[in-house]
Design a protein around this nucleic acid. Structure first.
Lengths: 224, 224
DNA sequence: GCCGATCTTGACGAATCCTTAACGCCTCCC
DNA sequence: GGGAGGCGTTAAGGATTCGTCAAGATCGGC
């Protein structure tokens, strides 16, 4: 998680960097607008913390330039309390505005709020492809030879667990307790029935499965 | 664009409402936590402006309750300047925090920043066409065989969610909580009634739908 | 205060899914 | 070689869910 800190005062940059690193973030720094824009272009940035009093560029110009091509959240630091400055920065594309001097805790909390919102819409890229079928975990959609394959809730539950743990052995008890509840931990019959159905729907040769593998005496395994 | 204003002081509510309406927003108001939650569940809210000094509930409790089922941006107003209050509110799920007294211009600018970010990721999927009907999300207009089709608010809410997620399975709970609020998560009856109405209005053969598909036991899916 | 539109609620066959049992195959071990 | 246990397959019943209809309740506008 890269955080870009831009401030012309090296002391502030260093202090912020230490604090942020202590929180587990990776920190990238810049002391002027030019290098800030370059740094932002070089690597993926999760949040940009931007001081408005830069030597080479008007602060709002930096915001506008970044917004030309990126939607990265921008948190503005400024020594100016004027309402006008805030409005201009926010309307230029900033997401938040704190006036110096600020509390570190507040800065971190606002940072978390921004990160929460920006990483939330990041839907997990959950598309798994095998030689005979494709599964889109997000859409809950399965395709086999161009055709959509329908799944019942129980079938989907089982498949979901197996696919989210590729190549990993899932014991029968794990599957049973996850899908049916702990009370059914010994109903291994259910698994046989449903694994057979899954194979009939997904495998090219259900008789000799290549992706939904049985580990005799142990459990099942999904092999992409 | 609905904005929900929550404050126990009627003067502030009225002043804010007038200002916001002047900006072209639609304003919904509440003076305590209970009614705020109810109001938020009743209709789609674009932003929630929340005062923390409510008579019936702890302010952060309101935030937590809303976050149970909605990602709506929350802007907190508070008379308390303490850093701790800010951190707690932000970590509870608020997106921004302004201390009273505040400048109206700043409030509006922060509001714009929140709206920009929450509506930005909304892909411009404004027009969807299928073999039997056309939907214009922006104009809220539906055409079937040259004829305009009328939708009730609830019908539209459901259709809107489904169409904005083409091919994606939407759970019954998702639909119920998004349209009716989290308290109705088990009223699967409603969905059956409304899905039948949507099909009667949109599908060529409502008996065997081709675009509004049921996934038994799970939910519904819109297939273009 | 009335009327129309919309939303809620209940009930009923129909479709779908889950459970259960039976049978045959295979492997492993005695 | 035979038996036991685990596994795959199939089919039928019972349980759950779905689609449909209609009537009562609620809301909003005139």
């Amino acid at each position: 998680m890269n955080i870009l800190v831009v401030d012309d005062d090296p002391h502030i940059v260093r202090a912020l960097a230490i604090t942020l690193k202590g929180q587990g973030y990776t920190v990238v720094t810049a002391t002027d607008g030019e290098s800030a824009l370059r740094a932002a272009a070089q690597r993926p940035i999760a949040v940009m913390i931007l001081d408005l009093g830069l030597p080479d560029m008007e602060g709002n110009a930096v915001i506008t330039a970044v917004r030309e091509w990126s939607a990265v959240p921008i948190l503005v630091l400024s020594a100016r309390h004027g309402s006008n400055d805030k409005v201009e920065a926010l309307d230029a594309g900033a997401d938040d505005y704190i006036t110096k001097p600020f509390g570190l805790e507040e800065l971190l909390a606002r940072l978390r709020a921004l990160l929460r919102r920006s990483t939330e819409p990041m839907e997990e890229v959950t598309k798994v492809e095998t030689s005979s079928f494709t599964v889109d975990l997000g859409k809950r959609q399965i395709t086999k030879e161009g055709q959509d394959v329908r799944m019942t809730p129980t079938e989907w539950n089982i498949l979901d667990i197996l696919i989210r743990n590729p190549d990993k052995l899932i014991t029968q008890q794990q599957l049973l307790t996850e899908v049916w509840g702990p009370a059914y931990a010994k109903e291994a019959n259910y698994l046989r029935v449903y694994m057979a159905q899954l194979r009939r729907k997904l495998e090219k040769e259900p008789g000799s499965p290549r992706h939904l593998i049985t580990e005799p005496g142990m459990g099942y395994r999904f092999v992409p």
